[in-house]
Amino acid sequence: MAENKKRERYNIRISGLGGQGVVTTAHILGATMDNAGKYASLVPFFGSEKRMAPVEAYVRASSDPIYEVGEVVYPDIILIYHSQVVTHGKSYTMPFYTGLKPNSLIIINTDFDVLTEDDMKVLNDLNATVVQFDATKLAKKIAGTELATNMAMMGMLLGLTKLVTTAHIEAAVRERFLGNSFVASGGTASLDSAIEKKFKKKEQLLTANMDVINQTFEMANSVDISGSELIVRFDV
């Protein structure tokens, strides 16, 4: 495939653990692209989405229509929602960067350096950029719940790629929490009601989520990852 075609399209793989909102992220990302008048296709991983079990979801985002379906086997972007994905191999794709294309982006939620020497050599050869920050801590700090971790990860992704504006995201998040067009497993729905109780009102939930996203957008704006070192770290 021609190299110059790659950047018009992002093939994203999201790896995390059950309960972290991985599948939810995929759906919101899809809706966000839709709101922006662009295209997305997504494939949630289905099977045993139990708490703390590995979960993967895949999103393709593009300014052109997308035909392809199925898992993203050769991603341009990888989101890692939990350090254990890397350190414990809690992932369906091992090692976590399997299939990564050259000049790609990896965003990892962690409070310590997770990459081994060997990992770094492979990623350096691929000219990848690894963005590393404690999204869970950020979620707790701003939204008061670690359930907003996925918002932080998504915000960072969209902030760095500048695919959409925060208005597009807000509309998608609003649809996700207030609309009813979402299809997911029963477990996700009961999780929602748990969050709702905590926040009393859905609007509050929405605002808290958006605060997290806005914060990550700001963080993303503060750096230029092109030509950067292999690892870019943010303090939270």
Partner: peptide, 12 residues
Amino acid sequence: TEGFFVTHAKGY
């Protein structure tokens, strides 16, 4: 149609 790839994925 293919399960999951189409049934559980969104499209226009």
